[in-house]
Design a protein around this nucleic acid. Structure first.
Lengths: 101, 101
DNA sequence: CACATATATGAACATATGCTCATATATATG
DNA sequence: CATATATATGAGCATATGTTCATATATGTG
C-alpha cells in the first residue's frame, strides 16, 4: 500500500484512544475502575480495599475525573465515586476476561 | 461491600492487563498496530507512512515484540511485521470505532 | 467558633518512557 | 572479502508518571 492509500486515523482520534488506553495502563487505576464497575465506592473504601494511602488514591481519582472516566456525588463529607464511561468499563472487562481465560 | 467480599483480580491478571493497555497507550504504537491490522508491513514502510526515524520505529517494534503483540518474517534484508495478538487488535479497533462515532 | 472527619492538592522525588544519535548486526551482491 | 541496504540496539536526555509527605479545603457537630 502506498502512503496515500491508507485509511488514516486523525491525530485527534489517535490521541483520544491513547489517552483512554493510558488511563487503563496502570495497575492502580485498573483496580479502581474494576471496583467501581462492581459498586459505587467512597474514597476511604477504595483506600482500604486497595490498601493504599488516601493521597495516592485521591490523586488517581483526580486523573480519572479529568478524563471523565469517573464522577462522584457528595453525601456529607463522604464522596461516592462511580464510573462515568460505560464503554471504557466494557473494554476493561473484556481484556480482563480474556486474560483470565 | 466488605474487603473480603470483593471479586478480586489476581495481581498477575492486573499486571498483564496493564501491560496490554500500556502498550496501546502511546500514539506511535497505536498507529503501528493500526497499520499492521490492515497489512503486513516492512520496517521501512512503517517508517515512511508514520514519517518517523527508522530508529524510533524499530525501538517501538522491539517493545511490541517483547509483549508478543507483533511478530515478523525475514525476506532478505527486509523484515515484514504482522500483528500477533488478534484480541488486542480487536480491542484497539473497538475503541477507535467508538471514538470515531 | 472550635474541632473532627473525609477528601483534595501541591511539591518533591524516584522511576519510566519515547525519542535521537551513533553504531552494531544481518543479509545480499560483486 | 568489500560494500550496500535494512534493521536493531545501546547510551543519553528531556519529559511524563506514580507515589509520599505535608497541608489545604469542605462538611458536620457541639
Amino acid at each position: 500500500m502506498k502512503q496515500q492509500d491508507h485509511l488514516f486515523l486523525s491525530a485527534q482520534t489517535v490521541d483520544e484512544a491513547s489517552r483512554i488506553f493510558k488511563a487503563l495502563g496502570d495497575p492502580t487505576r485498573i483496580k479502581i475502575l474494576y471496583l467501581l464497575s462492581q459498586e459505587e465506592c467512597s474514597v476511604s473504601h477504595i483506600t482500604e480495599v486497595l490498601d493504599m494511602t488516601q493521597s495516592a488514591v485521591s490523586h488517581q481519582l483526580s486523573l480519572l475525573r479529568k478524563l471523565r472516566l469517573v464522577k462522584y456525588r457528595r453525601e456529607g463529607t463522604t464522596l461516592y465515586y462511580t464510573y462515568d464511561d460505560e464503554h471504557v468499563i466494557t473494554v476493561l472487562n473484556q481484556v480482563l476476561t480474556h486474560i483470565k481465560c
